[in-house]
Design a binder for these strands. Structure first.
Lengths: 252, 252
DNA sequence: GAGTGGTCTAGACCACTGC
DNA sequence: CAGTGGTCTAGACCACTCG
């Protein structure tokens, strides 16, 4: 089925699209994940099983899984097996909220949904989310509090088709993080995001929610999140009060 | 010399400090880098040579180098060899300045050194840089312009001992980036950094330099940079005007 | 003890670079 | 052409988890 040599191999002059066997395996595993063959948090087959399924050696499967583990798509656990990464895993919790207190220890925020309504995508939302203008979208507004103090107000735009059942009630009932909810209830797993940060002056509505003076500086964080296959599925804008917190980033 | 089995191997109950052979090799290569055995941009010995030098198989050296390449410490080039990563490499240029224009294409900034003076470390600078209060430090102020417009003003604190020869003249003569200069002239290579971002109101001096109204929101970026062995060697605070640019971050 | 991932080895061959 | 990194394989053994 899969062959590294013979027909599939092509010299660089003939074809620039050659990819090594372990990347082909990676694509197949990715495809299975996208198809929901194994859900977030679940155990995938052992390396040996996958090797025989794809008719390659264990080492080749291992290299494919290595890359996917490095990309936080899979999680290896020695002696147990390899799991599909999940936002319910506490280890993945702070990957998408890089906010830490200026002093003191890290604490989990409390999320309060404020509003949730249906709308039609404007030109920009359509462009960002890969929709057509006028397509249905869902907008969520919510507040994040640390130690009882409001720190972040978010406005979140989602494709209406994918998140059809989402409502303020569903959001209020959910105890888990937003991304855990998306994963569990809508089968959408966020695997990557781009954030664009700017400093802006607080407008009245945001200032009141965050309990800061109107016009004070806020951190504006615009995020586009992608699921498998680099499909954008969330557009979000947050305003962060950086009086007692800051956005922590590691440059490697 | 190196042995994976026998004495060096210890059961987890006996010793939690066990590390696999390829990590020991990695440490040795790291140590050689730290000692300046191979300088940034230079070619290191081939995998085969390193394997025989350390008396391990090529595969083990390969795994050590794999990790170091993933950490941007080394750069592999098929058919040529493995190089010590360098900030002079244009590919590494934007890793440490995540500023992109809101519209239009990426452009290289023009750096203008403003001041450079000697001082004694205060309590905070000493703590951050791992010095004693009162130790000599060097402070640099500079301006970054994109398309002729001022966008960033930086204040940079460096350990005086390591950067002894640094002066405004040296900075002005240098055509390369600051980190290329540090690498070439002082043998200090930055390999990692932490940035803490906040939104602040522009004070008069910064506002004038950045040509924005006093009190307008600016992005404050505080950076601690580390060299080999996680030794902090730079403390920096930048104020970014985000009128026409934003700080771009990838969440993986 | 059986099954999993983790490490190490050795050898073959491919792809790229430069002489 | 020789030398480099890149891929693939097969087999051995180690470390961890669980029943």
């Amino acid at each position: 089925m899969l062959q590294f040599d013979s027909m599939m191999r092509q010299s660089s002059a003939d074809s620039p699209t050659f990819s090594p066997l372990y990347r082909q395996i990676k694509s197949l595993i990715l495809q299975a994940l996208d198809n929901g063959e194994w859900r977030p948090g679940e155990l995938i087959p052992s390396e040996m099983e996958l090797a025989s399924r794809f008719s390659v050696s264990q080492g080749t499967v291992r290299k494919a899984i290595d890359e996917m583990a490095a990309e936080n798509l899979l999680v290896r656990r020695q002696g147990k097996g390899t799991y599909v990464a999940s936002h319910s895993d506490p280890r993945a919790f702070f990957r998408f909220l890089r906010l830490v207190p200026l002093t003191g220890v890290i604490e989990s925020p409390k999320s309060t949904p404020l509003e949730c309504w249906r709308a039609k995508a404007g030109v920009e939302a359509a462009r960002v989310l890969g929709l057509n203008a006028g397509d249905p979208i869902i907008v969520v507004r919510r507040l994040l509090e640390f130690s009882g103090k409001p720190v972040v107000v978010d406005e979140i735009y989602l494709p209406g088709e994918i998140f059809a059942g989402l409502s303020l009630e569903v959001l209020k009932e959910s105890q888990a993080s937003l991304y855990s909810l998306f994963e569990g209830k809508f089968g959408v797993r966020m695997i990557r995001a781009e954030e664009r940060l700017r400093a802006v002056a607080a407008e009245r509505a945001s200032a009141e929610l965050l309990k800061v003076p109107e016009g004070s500086p806020l951190l504006s964080v615009e995020r586009i999140s992608y699921t498998y296959g680099d499909r954008p599925v969330e557009w979000r804008r947050g305003l962060y009060s950086t009086v007692e917190h800051c956005y922590l980033n590691e440059l490697g």
